[in-house]
Amino acid sequence: MVKLITLTAYKTTNEDIHRLRDLGWSDPQIAEAVYITALFAFFNRVADAFGLEDPNYFASPPPRGIQPTDGPT
C-alpha cells in the first residue's frame, strides 16, 4: 500500500482498501498510513531538491525489486 501510494497513487482501487480492512486495518489506520506516506513524499522531495545529502550517496541498488526505470510512467 505504501509503495502504491508512493509510486503510483493514481492506481489505488477499492480492492486495495478492502484488502487492508480484511487484514484488520481500520479506516483511521489506513488514512494515517496514507498521511505519513504523503508527508514523507514532501520531505523527501524537499531534501533531495535542496541537496541535503549527496544523491550519489544512494548509489546502492534501489530497494528490493524496484528498477530505476520503475515508478510513475
Binding site: 505519513i36 533531495d48 530497494p63
Partner: peptide, 13 residues
C-alpha cells in the same frame, strides 16, 4: 513507513 518511503523516493537524508 517513513523510512520505506524515503528508500522508495531515493532520499538518503
Amino acid at each position: 513507513i517513513a523510512t520505506y518511503v524515503s528508500a522508495l523516493n531515493q532520499c538518503p537524508y
